[in-house]
């Protein structure tokens, strides 16, 4: 039960505590990258996750319905 609207993608990230800590550390370390066009890339093993700041993203934000 939360009063903050978080997408399902966000809920998946928050559910994995270690991954959420990893993402938070990456943002804390290089937060400026969030405002860049390519965003901040977090590499997890062979996979990667791109994060962008919603208020400065140049492309249209795709939002789950």
């Amino acid at each position: 039960m939360t009063n903050v609207r978080i997408s399902n993608k966000g809920k998946i990230l928050l559910k994995n505590k270690r991954l959420s800590k990893l993402v938070l550390r990456a943002i804390g370390k290089n937060g400026d990258a969030l405002n860049k066009k390519d965003g901040l890339t977090v590499v997890v093993g062979s996979k990667k996750l791109t994060l962008k700041n919603a208020s400065s993203a140049n492309d249209k934000v795709v939002v789950e319905k």
């Binding site: 559910k15 994060l51 492309d59």
Partner: peptide
């Protein structure tokens, strides 16, 4: 900070699984 990710839900799930497998 309001953060968005261009990846799909499936891709985010894969990243989550990848993190689990790393551990």
């Amino acid at each position: 900070r309001f953060i968005t990710s261009p990846e799909t839900i499936e891709e985010v799930e894969d990243v989550s699984k990848a993190e689990d497998s790393l551990d």
